[in-house]
């Protein structure tokens, strides 16, 4: 599917983005999210927004474990960027999702669906025993964090889970 789309993209336009983020702790992220879940990506389908200005990707996740909140077994969310048959939009600071990928996501409710908090800061990819944040081309602004809290970054999945569950 993605390869077929890529062929169409050759004549299309694709935005890239760069952002500056403030250093944020896992605990802060968990406190400000309605749901934190470990999940597997079922599908990711790009489309144009209704006004035709941007491309967004509809993502369907199968929840494996809810670390915070009580999400439905299937969670649907929308992220900026992606590629349709006609046009592609790559938003560097936005998270991307690949079918089959295992992720940890920090979510807030948006209408009937969900959104990932703080662009790429709100998505981790599970890679073996590690969880890796999806921060892309992002500048990170240093900031003092509360004692004992850890900034978003690559860490063992078990530590990420412990920190999310302990955040109050």
């Amino acid at each position: 599917m993605r390869r077929a789309l890529a062929l169409y993209l050759l004549a299309a336009a694709a935005p890239a983005a760069a952002a500056t983020f403030l250093a944020t702790s896992v605990e802060e992220a968990a406190r400000s999210s309605e749901v934190v879940a470990r999940a597997r990506v079922v599908s990711a389908t790009a489309r144009l927004t209704r006004d035709g200005r941007r491309v967004v990707t509809d993502v369907e996740l199968a929840v494996l474990d809810a670390w915070k909140g009580a999400p439905e077994p299937t969670v649907r969310l929308v992220v900026p960027g992606g590629s349709t048959g006609r046009i592609a939009m790559w938003v560097d600071a936005a998270p991307t999702f690949e079918p089959g990928e295992e992720v940890v996501v920090f979510l807030s409710r948006e209408g009937a669906g969900w959104r990932v908090k703080g662009l790429a800061q709100g998505k981790f990819r599970v890679d073996g025993l590690d969880a890796r944040p999806a921060l892309a081309e992002a500048a990170v602004l240093p900031r003092a964090l509360a004692a004992g809290e850890r900034a978003i970054g690559t860490m063992p999945v078990a530590e990420l889970e412990r920190r999310v569950r302990a955040a109050r």
């Binding site: 993209l9 694709a14 983005a17 952002a19 983020f21 592609a88 908090k117 602004l141």
Partner: peptide, 19 residues
């Protein structure tokens, strides 16, 4: 306080032809 969302200072978007 909404740390994840309010940490974004600036955002640059570049539209380009990938070919």
């Amino acid at each position: 306080s909404c740390p994840l969302d309010w940490g974004i200072v600036a955002l640059t978007s570049v539209l380009y032809d990938p070919s």
